[in-house]
Design a protein around this nucleic acid. Structure first.
Ligand SMILES: [Mn+2]
Ligand SMILES: [Mn+2]
Ligand SMILES: [Mn+2]
Ligand SMILES: [Mn+2]
Lengths: 218, 218
DNA sequence: ATTTAAATTTAGATTAGTCTAAATTTTTAT
DNA sequence: ATAAAAATTTAGACTAATCTAAATTTAAAT
């Protein structure tokens, strides 16, 4: 049996290591899970012992194939629940994260498969992140940050990097939603702020915003 | 903060004590939760300390007003999730219990209120048990066991006492569902088996069945 | 009213997860 | 190449929940 805590660690390692390709170090995990480095060390030993991770003292940790499979399963559940909360229960996209954090640990194959079907097999969650299918397959759509966009080009918003309420509420207030079209009008060299056209309005956003909004060329 | 385990104990005490009116003893709780009496004793001390229960050594335990409120809240969640699973995710009524046992511990006011609204404020779960409203109010409908029914009278099935798959599958196989009308034709003194008319068919059911099917006079 | 049996509690251990403080290893800077 | 700083691990302790085995209390039976 895998515990809820082990699942949270595995998911954190997966995310910190960019889908599990990079090695992750202790302090990063402690920071992500709001815990202490010494607690992380203990857990890494356990995960290694159980075959979920390869861990070398002082050198960091990597998920095994089995560990990655578990991580993807949890992420699938997390994102499906997020879709459910937004589409069916009228949650806003900034309210779903905490609840999904708990729901992702409910263990029932049937539950998640039926939920998937009920939601008509969604491919992306409310923040634009891809939802793995039941075999764990998913494709990351080609996306760039607004900060990397090219002057004059036309784009479509497809995701957010920061999922904090503060950022999501900012986007709501400025009528920037997933699917919204954007044209890059000007990049200010002084402070990296960016002027964009959106819904026939011109607005200027800070570098901070530009570094957290994902776009796709259209 | 209240833990998942504390919640399970409180719910068990509530059920064993008939909505919290009777005093519950240690062994009954151990049996219900599949644990040992010594573990129960430890937890009863803790529940008393936290103000959820009144506990007298060797004499048994009662829920406080606060404890009852918590129990009812968990039961509300449990039953709402059961309705969701059956109505929306195509679960059969014998498949919902285990999953609901986990879902009932998800803590989000908004989640449960929205779920309630989404399901159109159901008053009863798939097994005929009443669902408390958000203030904790619910009324137990007047119901009797088939074994206590009177010859010749006409009834409607309104609930089950035993919620095991074995029993629920038996009912399915015999086309006995909630809402089905039943006429009591004969009570066999020898083995307490009962002959009933149901959907224009005559069938005989054992005492065991008769003691687990709730009816309402129609 | 004793004795016996049943129910319950206590004592002492164990596992999961966490923490602080101290020790060790690795990395960075001089 | 050494010293200082940063990262990481170990040692030892704590809480929640559980268990077994022994002790205690209550209830039942003679
Ligand atoms: Mn989680
Ligand atoms: Mn998301
Ligand atoms: Mn439960
Ligand atoms: Mn039920």
């Amino acid at each position: 049996m895998i515990t809820l805590t082990e699942e949270n660690y595995i998911k954190a390692i997966y995310h910190l290591g960019k889908q599990g390709v990079e090695t992750v170090n202790t302090n990063a995990i402690a920071e992500a899970l709001q815990t202490k480095a010494s607690s992380v060390t203990d857990m890494l030993k356990k995960l290694a012992e159980k075959g979920y991770a390869d861990y070398i003292k002082y050198q960091g940790v990597n998920l095994t194939v089995q560990g990655k499979k578990i991580a993807i399963g949890i992420i699938r559940k997390h994102r499906l629940w997020e879709v459910f909360l937004v589409e069916k229960l009228n949650f806003k996209w900034d309210e779903v994260h905490q609840v999904a954090e708990d729901l992702e640990h409910i263990k029932s194959e049937k539950l998640i498969d039926q939920l998937d079907a009920y939601l008509k097999h969604p491919t992306h969650d409310p923040h634009g992140d891809p939802i793995p299918d039941r075999d764990g397959n998913f494709k990351q759509i080609e996306k760039i940050l607004l900060s990397q966009a090219i002057l004059g080009n036309k784009y479509k918003c497809v995701g957010v990097k920061d999922t904090s309420s503060a950022f999501l509420n900012y986007l709501d207030a400025n009528a920037i939603a997933l699917g919204t079209e954007i044209v890059l009008l000007h990049k200010e060299p002084f402070d990296q702020s960016i002027k964009i056209e959106i819904n026939n309005r011109e607005i200027t956003v800070s570098q901070n915003v530009a570094k957290n909004l994902f776009l796709k060329t259209v």
